[in-house]
């Protein structure tokens, strides 16, 4: 077997493990759908009447933000899962075996991505049930899928790095909690122009804002323009940094 097929073999064993965890412990998946769904209903029915978005229904504005919320939840779940593996010692067992070095992380990342995509699809279905009417064409749907997957992939590597760096489930959950706040400090729920200037400086320039705008434009059948490239660039940068950080934390734990 070549190095690549070995890596694929090991990663797929690890992915099967993570997927089994998800089916054994469905709470993770349910929460990643339930929390965004509750927020969707709360914001749309509770506050939606008071929030005026120029040129459209609030729910059409809101859905990309809800998708980001779900992604934020997925960071937490993945970081906790990786940290649990460390604290329970199973990563040490894997490290005494002649297997591909990052297979266990790849398994977590791909598992997190698949979980996130299922969660996103369910959240969108709930949104449609309460009045969300996307008008995207197939090509734009492909764009929505692609960007969502890329974002979930990036966020999963960041989550793996957090899980490895903290090493305890409680620490990982605390740190990853920051990612659940990020969508609120962006243009995901309300336009950044409505925020005070000092806050805008952050909210308009953090990655969640271009990602939400791009998804919103695609779902509405519009053209996102250059914002899409900003969103993709952010995702690629986060994926790369997360991957490098995770590998470094993994190696550092090995050298002790």
């Amino acid at each position: 077997m070549t190095a690549l097929t070995l890596t694929l073999n090991d990663s797929s064993v690890m992915l099967r493990r993570v997927l089994r965890h998800t089916t054994r412990n469905p709470a993770t998946l349910i929460m990643s759908v339930l929390l965004p769904a509750i927020l969707l209903l709360l914001l749309d029915f509770g506050f939606g009447g008071a929030i005026r978005i120029p040129g459209g229904d609030y729910i059409d504005y809101l859905v990309p933000g809800i998708v980001l919320m779900g992604a934020g939840y997925s960071v937490s779940a993945t970081a906790v899962a990786v940290a649990t593996d460390i604290s329970e010692g199973i990563i040490d067992r894997f490290r005494t075996m002649a297997i591909s070095r990052t297979a266990v992380l790849t398994g977590h990342v791909v598992g997190s991505l698949l979980r996130g995509l299922i969660g996103t699809a369910l959240v969108m279905l709930i949104a449609v049930a309460v009045g969300f009417r996307p008008t995207a064409d197939p090509l734009r749907w492909l764009g929505v899928l692609g960007l969502t997957a890329l974002m979930l992939f990036a966020i999963a590597w960041v989550a793996a790095a957090i899980g490895l760096a903290t090493g305890t489930p409680a620490g990982a959950a605390g740190f990853a909690g920051l990612f659940q706040i990020l969508p609120f400090l962006s243009g995901a729920f309300v336009p950044t122009e409505t925020m005070p200037g000092w806050l805008q400086a952050f909210t308009a320039n953090q990655p969640m804002t271009p990602i939400a705008s791009t998804l919103r434009a695609l779902l509405a059948g519009e053209s996102p323009g250059d914002t899409a490239w900003v969103a993709v660039a952010w995702c690629c940068a986060a994926a790369l940094l997360g991957y490098l950080g995770a590998r470094r934390a993994y190696d550092r734990r090995a050298s002790r």
Binding site: M1, L6, N9, D10, V13, R16, R17, R20, H21, R24, N25, E88, G89, I90, D92, R93, F94, M97, I99
Partner: peptide
Amino acid sequence: SAVDKLLTGEENLVMMGGLHR
């Protein structure tokens, strides 16, 4: 003990078999 507590005993062993290719 470095075992996977969410998996069954059999699944743990099969996973190890997979990692030993």
